[in-house]
């Protein structure tokens, strides 16, 4: 037996999952099904889409309509699904590399269209599946197997990127702040347009070890100490925010949703 939540929504014969001890992805995956459960969504109409990487193995464990696609392309597949059948609640589970490197173009355009897709980025700052290469969210100066002398790239702020491209809901939480993560995913799903939740996960196996950041407990302590809720941040002086990162709801500005706008075009012919 497992908890009633897990028994209800997971493919029990596929568990335990393949993720490493201390990997945060299981926390994020549970947050997604918890959000679905709390929203009492019709599971037959939920479609979970992923790309490639550690994150993207999640749908295989989740008992919904699930699609494990090619590297970086989850949002493009999801665009076809949502556009073809807007009744489906489409949730994309992706990683930092999958979503913002190889899939970066699909991210900005999915955000721009404001189609009703909720994207949850399992952001562990590294390419885990291939063994620890640096990603667009590996902090500058940190190491990866392809950045043996320290990464000189700058880091993407995925929420700012999505917001600038047109996403109408963005939020960030960490696997330490799992309760907040659940709330943000719920609010993201409730937003009719494109939503992105940056779920800061932990990779003790590659990112942690390569950068001597310790095990997942130590990395989660670091997340706890360095995350500042956006509500609190507005009251803090800039020097208190140096080196910190924001969590919470970062943007919420509903705009006309793509499939509803397209429906108007179709209906104009049905009336005629």
């Amino acid at each position: 037996m497992a908890s009633s939540l897990i028994e209800k929504y997971m493919r029990m014969d596929k568990l335990p999952h393949i993720w490493c001890p201390g990997c945060g992805h299981g926390i994020v995956m549970r947050a997604v099904v918890k959000a679905i459960d709390e929203l009492e969504l019709n599971r037959e109409k939920i479609c979970i889409v992923s790309g490639i990487g550690c994150s993207s193995r999640a749908p295989g464990y989740m008992n919904f309509n699930t699609l494990h696609t090619t590297h970086g392309r989850a949002l493009a597949f999801a665009t076809g699904i949502k556009h073809a059948n807007p009744e489906l609640e489409v949730i994309v589970l992706t990683g930092d590399g999958d979503c913002t490197a190889i899939g970066g173009n699909h991210l900005i355009h999915a955000a721009r269209r404001n189609m009703g897709i909720t994207t949850v980025v399992f952001n562990n700052n590294i390419y885990g599946m291939t063994g620890g290469q640096y990603s667009p969210t590996t902090p500058t100066g940190d190491k990866g197997t392809t950045a043996p002398y320290g990464n000189i790239d700058k880091v993407f702020d995925i929420c700012s990127l999505a917001q600038a491209a047109g996403a109408t809901y963005t939020g960030r939480a960490t696997v330490y702040h799992a309760q907040l993560l659940i709330r943000l995913i719920k609010d993201g799903i409730k937003n009719k347009g494109f939503s992105l939740i940056d779920a800061i996960s932990v990779c003790p196996t590659y990112y942690g070890r390569k950068n001597k950041k310790g095990d997942s407990v130590r990395i989660m302590e670091w997340l706890k100490d360095n995350a500042v809720n956006v509500a609190a941040a507005s009251k803090l002086p800039p020097e208190k925010l140096a080196g910190k990162f924001l969590i919470g709801e970062l943007y919420n500005n509903p705009q006309p949703e793509y499939t509803e706008e397209y429906k108007k075009i179709v209906e104009s012919f049905q009336r005629g």
Binding site: S3, L5, P16, R30
Partner: peptide
């Protein structure tokens, strides 16, 4: 809430 492996839970 934070168990990545669903190995600990509160029985409802």
């Amino acid at each position: 809430l934070r168990c990545p492996d669903f190995a600990i839970y509160l029985e409802e």
